[in-house]
Amino acid sequence: MALIGPARYPVREPYAGGLEAFCHTMVSALRELGHEVDFFAAEGSDGNTKDFELPGVDWGDRAEDATDTTYPEGGRERENAAFIELRRLLVARGYDVVHNNSLNPYIFPSEASPEPLPMLTTLHTPMVDEIQDAITAAGLRAGRFAAVSRTTARDWRLPTEPVIIPNGVNVNLWRPGPGGETAVWFGRLVPEKGAHLAIDACRAAGIPLVLAGRNGDHHYVRDEIAPRLGDGVEWIGELSHAELRGLVANCGVAVVTPRWEEPFGLVAFEAMACGTPVAAFRRGGMGELLRDAPACLAPADDVDALAAAITRARGLDRDVVRRWVVDRHSLCQTAKRYTDIFRQVAAFAKVGQ
């Protein structure tokens, strides 16, 4: 089978974001289950197919302008051309199943490349107009779909009913720890992740906070994060995954502050796998998937309510928190669910030949 990852950043530790983490860990889990997986991802990825790599995004000497959603001059055109070529390669190689996790419309059938692929696309984001247009144009030829939450699935117009498969956490790596007095926020420092609100809420609750993550938007960090540092708030930058797991396991609460309709929110589940309770905004898939969890949720963007949730979350039983994730959201469970869908996709493709 083939698995297509995101094209913007290399898929390797430390992961640029949750999508990169999902793809890398899923490839490993599928291979451990005995599947032969060709992994197509950005140049410099770990464990990917080296005879065809996606170009990635290189801002060169314009790093201050870099964001996770825009491109330098010519960058989008290079990515589109690479996906057109990748689609031709996938058709030529005749894979049993193609698992698409990319955010590029040219992986779907079009007039230029109408050949069908036995493809399952997982929707990791709210609707993206150009991808929606490609799916609509392809119709049933677009293949099958999965979504990481019902919230995300409802945002798209799809030719077939999607299966809901929440992401999974490697609970053998995200191990329980003793906790501590400090709160932690980890992820990409970008406006839609709302780290500045985590700072405000922890300060209101009187709890020190450590931020760990990559600067994904220099203007946001300069304007919203840097002025708030100090006085019990520290940003320690990007960590290796081992370092990050150790940090989270030794904190008393993880704060998760989506300012968009968060499709899943992997960081919340990683924290809970360490036994670290979560205080989060009730938004998007986060509110859906944590509704019955041992976690404390607050209305979106309500800093005072989040401060109260942080205080409550610190009192949750860490063993109960971890057990909830192990029972419902382990990576092994997720990989097995995908395997069942892959078999269906492959069988349907053979019938149609």
Rank of each mutant, 00 (worst) to 15 (best):
I4F: 12
G5N: 05
P6N: 13
A7F: 11
P10L: 13
E13P: 12
E20T: 03
A29W: 04
V37T: 05
A41V: 03
G44Y: 14
S45H: 05
G47P: 06
F52M: 07
F52R: 08
G56E: 04
D61W: 15
P72G: 05
I84M: 11
L90Q: 10
V91W: 06
S102H: 06
P109E: 02
A112N: 09
P114L: 10
P118D: 10
L123A: 08
V128L: 14
T136Q: 05
G139D: 01
S149E: 09
T151R: 10
D155M: 14
R157H: 11
P159W: 05
V163I: 13
P176N: 07
E181Q: 11
T182K: 14
T182S: 10
T182Y: 07
G187A: 04
G194E: 03
L197Y: 08
R203H: 11
P208S: 05
P208L: 03
L209W: 03
V210P: 00
A226V: 15
P227Y: 09
G232P: 02
W235T: 04
A242G: 15
E243W: 10
V255I: 13
P263L: 13
A273I: 06
G287I: 00
C296N: 07
A313N: 06
V321N: 04
R322L: 05
R323G: 12
V326N: 00
C332K: 15
F348V: 15
